[in-house]
Deep mutational scan, measured.
Amino acid sequence: EFTQISGYVNAFGSQRGSVLTVKVENDEGWTLVEEDFDRADYGSDPEFVAEVSSYLKRNGGIKDLTKVL
């Protein structure tokens, strides 16, 4: 089950073990991109978060400006 990723309007994530599946949706709710990120592939949590965040930004993730990150 996908849940909204904090700080984004149209990005959602689903966690299974160490694998986080993220997706970005358009205004109609269609999935634009979907990608798996395995936490085990990264040396640290900040590196993992930075990679996921960068992916979302590159692929149309819209920041939720009503929330302070």
Rank of each mutant, 00 (worst) to 15 (best):
Y42P: 01
Q15K: 11
Y8S: 06
W30N: 11
D27M: 11
R16E: 03
I5F: 07
V49E: 13
N59T: 03
R39A: 03
G29F: 04
S6C: 15
N26Y: 05
S14M: 12
E35L: 09
L65P: 14
A11L: 02
I5C: 12
L20S: 01
S44L: 04
K57L: 11
V33L: 07
G43A: 11
L69W: 08
E1R: 10
D64C: 14
W30F: 13
P46Y: 14
A50N: 09
R39I: 04
L20C: 15
E34I: 14
T21R: 08
L65V: 13
D45A: 06
G61M: 05
I5W: 07
N10H: 07
K23G: 01
G13E: 08
K23Q: 05
T31C: 10
A40Q: 07
E25I: 15
D64I: 07
K57D: 15
L69A: 13
E47C: 10
N10K: 03
F2D: 04
S53G: 08
P46H: 12
S14R: 14
L56V: 09
G61E: 02
L32N: 04
K67H: 14
A50T: 08
K63D: 07
Y42R: 01
E51T: 10
Q4I: 14
F12E: 02
S14P: 02
D38V: 02
T3P: 07
K67A: 14
G60P: 01
F48Y: 06
V49C: 15
V52F: 02
F37D: 01
E34K: 11
Q4V: 12
F2R: 08
V33K: 08
D36H: 12
V68S: 09
F48H: 00
S44W: 03
L69E: 15
Q15S: 09
F12L: 04
E51M: 12
L32V: 12
F37S: 00
E1Q: 12
N26G: 07
N10I: 05
R39V: 02
D27L: 10
V24M: 02
D64A: 07
G43M: 12
L32P: 04
W30P: 03
E35I: 13
F37E: 00
G60F: 08
Q15G: 07
E28V: 10
T66I: 10
D27R: 09
F12T: 04
A11V: 12
G7I: 08
S54P: 00
D27V: 10
V33E: 04
D64R: 04
V22A: 00
F37Q: 01
S53Q: 12
E34M: 14
F12D: 02
V49D: 12
Y8T: 06
F48E: 01
G61Q: 03
D27Y: 08
N59S: 06
Q4N: 09
G43Y: 08
L65T: 12
T21Y: 05
E28K: 12
L32C: 10
V52D: 01
G43D: 11
W30H: 12
F37W: 01
N59C: 13
R16F: 08
L56I: 15
Y55C: 05
T21A: 03
V33H: 11
L69F: 10
E35Q: 14
L20D: 00
S18N: 09
R58A: 13
G13M: 14
N26F: 05
S53Y: 11
V19I: 13
V52Q: 00
G7S: 04
D64P: 04
G29R: 05
V52N: 01
D36E: 12
G7V: 04
S18P: 05
R39Y: 06
V52L: 10
Y42N: 00
S14H: 08
V22R: 00
F12Q: 02
V9Y: 08
E51I: 12
A11S: 03
S54M: 10
N10S: 05
G7L: 06
V9Q: 07
G29V: 04
R39H: 04
K63F: 14
E25F: 13
V24Y: 01
N59H: 13
K57E: 15
V19T: 04
T31P: 07
T21G: 01
E1K: 12
K67G: 15
S14E: 05
I62F: 08
D27W: 08
G17N: 04
G29D: 03
E47V: 03
V22D: 00
G13R: 06
F37H: 00
Y55M: 04
T21H: 11
E25D: 05
R39D: 02
V33Y: 09
A11C: 15
G17S: 01
V49N: 10
E1H: 13
V24K: 00
E35T: 12
A50F: 09
W30L: 13
V52R: 00
G43I: 08
L65K: 09
I62K: 09
E35Y: 12
T66C: 15
E34C: 15
K63I: 14
G29Y: 02
D38P: 01
G13F: 13
R58K: 12
F37C: 03
E35S: 10
E28R: 09
V19W: 03
G60D: 03
D41H: 11
V68A: 09
S18H: 06
V22Y: 00
E47L: 07
W30A: 13
P46I: 15
Y8I: 05
V24G: 00
D41E: 07
N26L: 08
D41C: 13
L56D: 02
E28T: 09
G7K: 04
L65A: 11
S44G: 06
A40N: 11
D41F: 08
G17T: 02
V68R: 05
T31W: 05
E35V: 14
L20M: 04
V68Q: 10
I5Q: 03
V24L: 08
A40T: 08
I5M: 08
E51W: 07
E1G: 14
K23S: 06
N10M: 03
I62N: 04
I5K: 05
D36N: 13
E34F: 10
R58Y: 09
S6W: 12
R58H: 09
D41K: 10
R58V: 11
A50C: 13
V22H: 01
L69H: 15
Y8G: 08
S54D: 14
G29N: 04
P46M: 15
N10G: 02
S44H: 02
I62E: 05
N59Q: 06
R58L: 13
S54K: 12
S53D: 13
V9I: 14
T21C: 07
V22M: 01
F12P: 01
E1P: 11
F12G: 01
S14Y: 10
S14V: 14
G60R: 01
S18M: 07
V49Q: 12
D38N: 10
S6D: 12
K63R: 11
V19G: 00
G17M: 03
N10L: 04
G61W: 05
E1Y: 10
E47K: 03
R58M: 11
E51K: 10
R16L: 07
D41I: 06
A11Q: 01
V33F: 12
L56P: 02
G61A: 15
K23N: 00
E35W: 13
G7P: 07
L56E: 01
A50I: 06
V9P: 03
D27S: 12
D38E: 03
L65C: 15
G60W: 08
E34V: 13
V22T: 00
S54F: 09
K23Y: 07
V22F: 02
L20I: 07
S44E: 03
R39E: 03
L56M: 02
E1S: 13
S44K: 01
A11Y: 03
S54Y: 08
S53R: 13
I5A: 05
I62M: 07
T3Y: 14
G43Q: 10
I62S: 04
V22S: 00
K63N: 06
S53W: 09
Y55F: 14
D38A: 02
V24I: 13
A40V: 08
D45F: 13
E25Q: 12
A11M: 02
V9S: 08
A40Y: 06
A50Q: 10
N59F: 09
T31E: 05
R16M: 07
T66P: 09
V22G: 00
T31M: 06
D36T: 14
R39G: 00
K67V: 14
I62H: 07
T31S: 06
A11T: 02
K57M: 13
E51N: 08
A11W: 04
F12S: 05
F37A: 00
Q4L: 15
V22E: 00
W30V: 14
L56K: 01
V19M: 04
E28W: 12
E25R: 11
K63V: 13
S14L: 14
D38Y: 02
E34R: 10
K23C: 09
T66W: 10
F48V: 01
D41P: 02
N10E: 02
T66M: 09
V49S: 09
F2Y: 09
V24T: 01
S18L: 05
E34W: 12
G17Q: 02
V22C: 02
A11F: 03
G17Y: 03
K63L: 14
E1A: 12
E47Y: 02
F2C: 09
A50L: 09
V49I: 13
T31G: 06
V68I: 10
K23I: 08
L32Y: 07
V52K: 00
S6G: 09
Q4A: 10
D45C: 15
V49M: 13
P46D: 14
K23D: 01
T31Q: 05
L56W: 00
S44R: 01
R58I: 10
K67L: 15
E34S: 15
D27G: 10
Q4M: 11
D45G: 08
E28L: 10
S6T: 09
K63Q: 12
V33C: 15
Q4F: 09
T3F: 14
N59Y: 11
R58C: 14
Q4T: 08
Y42V: 00
D38F: 03
S53A: 12
F2P: 04
V24E: 00
V68W: 12
I62Q: 07
T3E: 10
K67E: 15
L69K: 07
F12N: 03
G13C: 14
S54I: 08
R58N: 13
